[in-house]
Simulated scan of single mutants.
Amino acid sequence: MSSPIAVVTGASSGIGAATARRLADEGFRVVAAARRADRLADLVTRITADGGAAVAVTCDVTDDASVAALAARAADLGGPVSLLVNNAGGARGVDHVEHASPTDWQWMYDLNVLGTLRVTQALLPALERSGAGTIVVIGSTAGLVTYEGGGGYTAAKHAELALTETLRLELCGRPVRVIEIDPGMVRTEEFALNRTGGDAVAAAAVYAGVAEPLVADDIADCVAWCATRPRHVNVDRLVVRPLAQAAQHKVHRV
């Protein structure tokens, strides 16, 4: 039998890239999807150099045609599509609600919620045909609580959580698991920088004094563990934070 196929969105950097590498190590043929073709090419080169199998697909999860092309490319590989990691997402802005940009809120909803919806709809038939499909949604602890300056992002992540939980109910009795992983403070090269509009000082302040925030490989490890459990085991929700973060507002800094 051919190796199972795993589709990872948002694979050009951060958690997505780390997850693609880890799943290749676990024996999956990885379809690495994102908008930045140059970064995907570098990722695939690294995976294949390490003995893994991966292909790059340039994809914008906010575009129907682009997502359809992603699903078609995964099907063309000729093996069972057994894993989808909905990782594409992001945050913009730290303004309070009274000053927030509707444009930023729309972008976050389109990417985090409708992007997850589009990709899930496109890949679900193949996942079900595999007889052992798994959908992993990378949410956030921002989907569990709210905090000042996070209205748009927490709204989008709460909506993504609702989508995920509804999907699990609707797929009950069918051979597709639905798993939600909600990271807390994860230091990646781009997330906080993008959220602060490229302000490197503000981005660094998010992690100031936190000796050991989570890193992308920590979340990739969680994805791999959840996805490789016995088929009768469904990890509904995995909340993972660094030791220094007891809650969204409770962070030990030195």
Rank of each mutant, 00 (worst) to 15 (best):
R253P: 02
D199W: 10
V254C: 04
G143S: 10
N194L: 14
P80K: 10
A216G: 08
V57C: 15
A142V: 00
G115K: 01
I15M: 11
M185V: 05
V254I: 03
A37H: 10
D221I: 02
A91T: 10
A32H: 10
N194E: 14
Q106M: 11
W225Q: 09
K157M: 00
R231M: 07
R35L: 03
G143W: 13
Q121S: 02
Y147H: 08
A37L: 06
H99D: 15
R36L: 07
V206T: 11
V57R: 15
T164K: 04
V67C: 06
D104T: 14
G133I: 06
R253H: 02
D182K: 12
P102Y: 09
E160W: 06
A200E: 13
T45K: 13
G79S: 05
I219T: 04
L84Y: 02
Y153D: 00
G143T: 15
E170V: 15
H232D: 08
H99Y: 12
L243D: 04
A192L: 13
G150H: 07
R237S: 01
A246M: 08
M108Y: 01
A200V: 14
H249Q: 01
A227M: 13
C226L: 07
V201K: 07
H252R: 09
A203P: 04
R39T: 11
T48H: 14
N86M: 12
C222K: 09
L161Y: 15
A162R: 06
R231C: 00
A69Y: 02
D60F: 01
R168G: 09
M108N: 03
D38Q: 13
S101M: 12
L169G: 13
G27D: 08
E190F: 09
I179G: 00
A208C: 03
I179K: 00
G90E: 10
A224E: 13
D64E: 02
D199N: 14
I181P: 02
E148N: 02
N234S: 00
A68K: 13
G16D: 09
A11Y: 11
V254Q: 06
V186M: 07
V57N: 11
G27L: 03
R174N: 04
L40V: 00
R36S: 11
R129Y: 01
A204D: 15
C226N: 08
G14Q: 08
D25T: 15
A227H: 08
A122G: 01
L167A: 03
S3W: 15
V251C: 02
V251T: 04
T134D: 05
L243A: 13
I179R: 00
H252N: 08
L114I: 03
S66E: 05
E160L: 13
V119N: 06
D42T: 06
E98Y: 02
A6S: 07
A74Q: 01
